[in-house]
Design a protein around this nucleic acid. Sequence first.
DNA 1: ATGAAAGCGCTAACAG
DNA 2: CTGTTAGCGCTTTCAT
Lengths: 342, 342
Amino acid sequence: METMEPTRKEPSQHEIAARAGVARTTVSLVMRGGAGLKQETIDKVHKAAEELGYRPNLMATMTRSGKSRMVGVMVPPIDSYWARIACGIHDYLTEQKYIPLFLWPSHMFEDLDEHRELDQVHLMLDCRIGGVILWPYFAKMFEKHIHEFSSRSLPVVTVDCSIEQAGVNADSVLGDNRTGAKAVAKHFKELGHKNIIHFAGPDSEDWARDRREAFEEEVDCLTVEVDIRPRLDPIMKTTLEAHPETTAVFAATDVFARDVYRVAAELGRRIPDDLSVVGYSDLDFGEYLNPPLTTVHDNPYNMGKRAASLIVHRMEGNAEDDPTVQLLPVQLLQRGSTKSIV
Amino acid sequence: METMEPTRKEPSQHEIAARAGVARTTVSLVMRGGAGLKQETIDKVHKAAEELGYRPNLMATMTRSGKSRMVGVMVPPIDSYWARIACGIHDYLTEQKYIPLFLWPSHMFEDLDEHRELDQVHLMLDCRIGGVILWPYFAKMFEKHIHEFSSRSLPVVTVDCSIEQAGVNADSVLGDNRTGAKAVAKHFKELGHKNIIHFAGPDSEDWARDRREAFEEEVDCLTVEVDIRPRLDPIMKTTLEAHPETTAVFAATDVFARDVYRVAAELGRRIPDDLSVVGYSDLDFGEYLNPPLTTVHDNPYNMGKRAASLIVHRMEGNAEDDPTVQLLPVQLLQRGSTKSIV
DNA sequence: ATGAAAGCGCTAACAG
DNA sequence: CTGTTAGCGCTTTCAT
């Protein structure tokens, strides 16, 4: 029996044991710290391992111990914001010797069939992840995903949204959207702006609703256009034309703000002289716009790190704690797109 | 013995066997297609599996069979170009039921200590990847990485560069840089440009050298500035001022082109009226520049797919074939930053 | 057509 | 302190 040629033959603890003249078990002990073994034995084993170029087999370790070090990470490569979140997750996890399993719905931007989207979830399950970090922003089947995980009582951490669903208790990490929006409002006030438009995201999304509500608590807007995404340019143009007295625009994301630049140019309104513009998220293109975009930086890298540390905490046995919501501090980045009118 | 509480208790083939009233082995057979089993048995097993919510344990499968379905992928989240490559790799691999293991040097942009960079390589090895896809663009220790893999005779595919190193035979996937650069040259000629500057990348990088050489074969440049990255803006400014007769600039990447826009604005030269500009790579910000940037589209998504298909091919047993270099077609994207001067 | 036996590389209880 | 024993969940050979 045992014939099929394997992909490769790496040295195992068996070979080390033979070479060092100890039992297989002893090698195992040494590899995990070797508490209470004779220094001589430890050295012998390490030497043999070194000579053989030994690398532990994490698959086997995980199988045997029943302890997963795999963390499912479902955050698709959308833009620089995502990239920073992903880096935060990656850096924290690998530092702790956990393994991020980055998987997301394929063909995100095409019309996705549900079948394929669930496949990625199953792939994670089949890799026996011990927890999962989700960025629901995109996921058409978010509820189904969540259920798939929490029904197996896998810990879940969400980034950039909090989740309230029956039977699900997930931790979440968010930028402090309310404070960010208020900082924008305050900034406008200080600059003397009174005629302000807010282009908001869909109210169904936490980040969009929080920003809109907090902003409206601070200032009276001429108008607030909610969920402009389906027909971006036309709505912006119409709205701006309908309110020629507008001196300031708060765009719910930098992506919207970029379009405001374009539309403003078409309408012959100069930024910041005729129109002050503020975005949100500090996406990479913002500082290269002309003028550079004033925006709210909300620390996606740290969001990633925090999300990772939360999931690790759960995986290390604190599964029963109450779910937390972590709000990360934000920071207004004043650049060239806003100007005083007093 | 066997006490430590495992992370979770998923149903195994053992439970299925018990519930379906067959042997453990039979379940295993069914799970891999069940060739030559009675249909009745197959159905019984599937039913039991379904009822238990069974999911196969890939870790165990891989451990036992000695066949890895893990593919190391070392392409860090730099920009939209990378994101498309990553998506291509991800989509192809998951479709084939392979698992991409995205890992990259942490703290890429900080001063990285070698130690941490090798850690990620070791993590891949410890996961018993069966092959690896590398994007060397960033890696300070690229040679060491390659060696770590190829000394274990793991197949390697490089993206966006070809590798020539003793004892290493890696496949590679590249955009057709020479053809791309010539297309730019041809475009300039058709528009009547004769006084052209090329801002090139470092000659040590394949993509940069290929673009520069091919471009210079087609047109006479006023000047070619090589490897401007260390002091981007000053060099551009000086060069542009030293050659006031310049009517066209070919920037080796869109990133350079973006800076050309800024410098041109400072010098009071309007694009495209006074200066035609072409970039390379079709990064996401290009179409939002004012005017939208003419550039060369390179098909990073397909590069990713091809890289993935190459590595799968190797992993499925064609380890001995000669290394291939795959050149992907490119396409000039004419937008608003170039103009005829005849 | 199915099952028994053997074992991948590893861990964890226990004994000596 | 070290080695023995008994597995994790799975595959593969071989016997029935």
